[in-house]
Amino acid sequence: MIVYLLCFVLFLTGLYGVITRRNLVKIVISLSIMEFSIFLFLALIGYVDGGTVPIVDPADKGVVTYVDPLPQAMVLTAIVIGLATTAMLMAVIIRIYRKYKTMDIREIKNLRG
């Protein structure tokens, strides 16, 4: 149970960062922290107490418990997608810095209303 709580604390840390930080790069880092707390959660729900690597070995005769491999596959896919999103955000931040000469979110407010 405590690991799930820690996961949630990590999620909240990220959320706090997204809401309070003023620097664009820090917002992106906080988003990544949130993202990784969810990846951790997904990896945790596939965990089976005392389970081993989910590779079926024909030599094993007895009953072996494996951890659930499907959430791991999901996490791998989600990490790749997260990488693409982060790269895209960073590219946008570089462009924003060239146009506005600042990374402070309070000074980037052309769009209103």
């Binding site: 949130m34 946008v92 931040i93 146009k99 769009l111």
Partner: peptide, 19 residues
């Protein structure tokens, strides 16, 4: 300038949605 600002906002909220 405006397009970059809009896309940043869109991406942060879109990222939150996908999470």
């Amino acid at each position: 300038r405006e397009q970059l600002e809009a896309t940043f906002k869109y991406q942060v909220l879109g990222g939150l949605a996908s999470m």
